[in-house]
Amino acid sequence: MRNDVREMRAAQDLSQAALAAAMGVSRQTINSIETGRYLPSLPLAMALARYFETSVEEMFHDQDAAH
């Protein structure tokens, strides 16, 4: 599942460590989410969406749904 976390974070000139601190997770976890190696839980996905003032659907893209 693709996501826009890296782009949204970069747009706000925010480091992975700062976003991790705000979410209460490790920097490694933010990196893994951005690279698509880890799919976050629903609460974390919602917290990320809330942080960037968007929706989960806007931030995470189901590749199957595009076809």
């Binding site: 706000q12 925010l14 700062a18 601190a21 705000a22 979410m23 209460g24 997770v25 839980s41 609460p43 974390l44 917290a47 990320l48 942080y51 003032e53």
Partner: peptide, 17 residues
Amino acid sequence: MTRTQRTESAGPGGPKG
């Protein structure tokens, strides 16, 4: 919401420390 306010808000893991 400002950056400072958002940085203080915590995700599901809760505030650090």
